Amino acid sequence: MKASFPLSLRIALGALVLASSSLAHAWPDRAVKLIVPSAAGGVIDVPARIYANFLSKEIGQPVVVENKTGAGGSIAVQAMLNAPADGHTILYTGSSVLAEIPHTMKPPYDPMRDIKPVASLAKYGLVLVVSPDYPASDMAGLAKQLKAEPESGSFASPSPGTLSHFGGEMLNRRLGVSMQHVPYPGAPPALVALMSKQVTMYIDSLVTSAPFVRAGKLKALAVSGTSRFPGLPQVPTFAEQGYPEFNNFGGELGIVVSPKMPAADVDKLYAVTRKIAGMPEYRDQVTRQGFEPVTPSSPQEFAQNVQSRYTNFGELIRTMNLKP
């Protein structure tokens, strides 16, 4: 004789099975891929790996960093968008990929609609560097050298549409010269080109250039921001030398996901990221690399910051008449 279960018990057992199934597939239930749109050792890659280590510890799953360079970050963004939108593929990126480069290198997606910002994690400043034996030692000397031969200078960038690119064009306009823009596939090759004197100057992140300045392999003429960089206290700011337009010239780094990622999982990712951002050990590691750690306030605020940068740089590009 077969045993018969009451209807109420069968409903309860069914609910338990469904709940168990839901928990089994809750984010994250396997390794997480963290895509980075820069080469290993680049300005985005360094803090991304710090974040990946802490994230892995917090979620109890491996976090694998995957570098996808090229096309101004579009290849990395597309890889994230092509992956299942289940939160197991995240993009750690710079503001340039979302808000600046798309104005000069049109991507196959809308950076303001097809990407969901989750959390801002770090900021960094910039430094104008030249070869150690370049005749100028400050911005006045640089202006003198460039104006002596207005069409002979050149400046490097890690991609069209980056702050390095815009900074060089801003100096062209300010000084009335015609330096040639020479883009490279990332900061490391741009630095190699500068040290081998293939280009005149490079406005690079302090993170990647400061060690070379301290080692005597590059000479720094100015840093962005309203105060001097503690790692290079001898280098004056642009503003100190009469270039206040570089006061707010810097980059922002953070994580973004597909807008199709479930809202509950986005909330979990944000919560664990905010927890990491507040850890003294994490902040110390980020600071030692030359970044300013940021405690994210909300995904909405990060999205507003990205939108504001996108709008502002769009206006700047129109002013400079730069074409995609």
Rank of each mutant, 00 (worst) to 15 (best):
V256E: 06
S4E: 09
W27I: 04
G72T: 05
K197R: 15
G141E: 06
V192Y: 11
A99T: 15
N247M: 08
Y310D: 00
G290Q: 05
H165W: 14
L218S: 11
T311A: 09
T319C: 00
R173A: 11
P47T: 04
R174D: 15
L13Q: 15
G176F: 14
Q198V: 00
H103M: 05
A119W: 14
Y124R: 02
L55F: 15
G161F: 04
P117Y: 04
E281L: 06
Q145L: 00
P236T: 07
A136Q: 06
F229S: 15
I115D: 05
H165K: 09
N312E: 14
Y92I: 01
Q300F: 05
F238G: 05
S74R: 07
L163G: 06
Q234C: 00
G161V: 07
L126C: 05
V294C: 05
R174A: 10
M170G: 10
Y202A: 01
A156N: 15
A40I: 10
A85K: 01
S227P: 00
T89N: 09
I50K: 07
Y282R: 13
P102V: 01
Q241R: 13
L163D: 14
L128T: 07
P259R: 01
K144N: 09
V177S: 09
H25I: 07
A222C: 06
Q289M: 07
A148D: 03
S20R: 12
G251T: 01
S224M: 04
E245L: 13
Y243L: 13
P107R: 09
D86S: 07
S21A: 13
G216L: 01
S22Q: 13
L91N: 04
D45S: 06
G290R: 10
V77W: 10
L142H: 12
G251R: 02
A99W: 14
L142W: 10
A119G: 05
V177Y: 07
V235I: 12
P84G: 01
T93E: 01
K144H: 11
V223H: 12
E58F: 03
P158Y: 08
E66P: 02
M279N: 15
G231K: 13
S258L: 01
P259V: 04
Y109I: 00
Q307W: 06
V46P: 14
K147V: 00
P132D: 09
T295W: 03
K147M: 01
P211G: 04
G161K: 03
A215V: 01
S4G: 04
P84W: 09
P211A: 02
M195I: 03
A220Y: 03
K323V: 12
P293R: 02
K268N: 11
D204N: 15
G290T: 11
S298K: 03
L142T: 11
A193T: 12
S196A: 08
Q285S: 11
